[in-house]
Amino acid sequence: MIRETEVDCDDLIMPYFVCPGTKVKNPIPSMPGNYQLSIDLLVKEVKDLVDRAGVHKILLFGIPEHKDETGEVACSHNAIVPQAIKAIKREVADVLIVADVCNCEYTVHGHCGTIVNGDVNNDLTLVTLASQSVTMAEAGADIIAPSDMMDGRVGAIRKALDDHGYTKTPIMAYSAKFASAFYGPFRDAAGSAPQFGDRSTYQMDPANGDEALREVEQDILEGADMVMVKPALSYLDVIQRVKTNFNIPVVAYNVSGEFSMVKAAGANGWVDEERMIKEILTSIKRAGADVIISYHAKEFGIKKRLEK
């Protein structure tokens, strides 16, 4: 009767990895129950997500057939994610599609931007990100979600979308994205591990909370409609501070490493997996998140419906 926080299916976004081919369902060993899916199987999976779990929002990551130096391959209308967006929109009526915009999955070196003299060049990367965003919007993406952490990318994307007539397409900015150890399984799933160095020159130092607020504020000033904190569990304090300081929807990403730790502990019988998932998602919402991106979304939704 007096419970303060309740996670509902409408609070959740389910991430998916889409790959070339047909009838492809490649298991991701470090993320049990998750797969690289070809478009035909992804469409069926999204239908099942909506019908059985009652989750109507997805986040798409692409695994391209070919990569290049800048990520420009993702700007083509024939790229894997735009094709997937069109197919899902044709077949699934009630689904909201968030398109991740970054270059790490599409570059041969695995970094999030164009490399010049051994490091990511911020301003050259903005050109690719803006072009990729327009392509996603033209394919039918409902929300553009830049995850690269380049300075000024929200402003560049907003201008590009507006210039092409997509003034009403919102931006979900990965605003406080930390250089975290919790991304390991994702890099297996997306084939996006950097081939040299790391991403600490453009992602945030995990020790910095005040900087996160500055990053969020800058993205809001550039036109972000929603801001994200990633990862979630080690940064609940940041989620709470962002929610307290800014009157804007807050998204939290319950990332792959957080997911895989629960799955590993559950598989070994060390924890009550179902209770732990519910507790984790509740804590993220209690901290202030309005929306939670989580690989637990489908199984949580199915169990939630059974409870009702």
Rank of each mutant, 00 (worst) to 15 (best):
K285I: 10
D290R: 06
Q240V: 01
V255N: 12
G266Y: 13
E274A: 14
N245I: 05
E274D: 13
N245C: 15
N254P: 00
F246S: 02
G269H: 11
P249D: 07
E279W: 09
A264R: 14
A267Y: 09
D272T: 07
A267G: 13
E274N: 14
D272W: 02
G269P: 00
V250R: 02
A289I: 09
K285W: 08
A287D: 06
P249N: 05
S260P: 10
E279D: 03
D272R: 01
S283G: 08
N245Q: 15
E258I: 08
F246T: 11
F259D: 09
V262F: 07
V262T: 12
R241N: 12
S256K: 00
V250P: 02
P249G: 04
N268F: 12
K278E: 01
D290T: 04
R286T: 14
S283F: 02
A265F: 13
V242K: 02
M261H: 04
A287W: 02
I248Q: 02
G257K: 12
V255H: 07
P249Y: 10
E274G: 02
V251M: 07
M261R: 11
V271S: 01
K278V: 00
R286K: 15
G257D: 11
V271F: 00
Q240F: 03
V250W: 04
Q240K: 13
N254E: 09
T244L: 02
S260M: 12
N268Y: 13
A264G: 14
K278P: 00
I277Y: 10
G269R: 09
E273V: 02
K243T: 09
Q240T: 03
D272A: 05
W270D: 11
T244I: 03
N245F: 14
R286I: 10
R286L: 12
F259C: 15
S283L: 11
S260L: 10
G288I: 02
G269L: 10
E258R: 07
R241H: 09
T282L: 13
F259W: 15
V251W: 03
L281P: 03
V262Q: 12
Y253L: 01
G288M: 05
A289K: 04
G269Q: 04
I239A: 13
T282F: 05
G288R: 01
A289P: 07
N254Y: 00
A287M: 06
V271P: 01
E274H: 14
I248K: 03
N245A: 15
A265P: 09
R275S: 14
P249K: 04
Q240M: 06
Y253R: 03
F246E: 05
R275I: 06
E273F: 02
N254C: 03
A264K: 08
F259Q: 15
S256R: 01
N254A: 05
N245R: 15
F259V: 13
K285V: 04
V271I: 15
S256V: 03
R286N: 09
L281R: 01
F259G: 12
M276P: 02
G257W: 13
T244V: 06
S256F: 01
A267W: 13
I248C: 04
A264H: 09
E274F: 14
N245D: 14
G266F: 15
F246M: 06
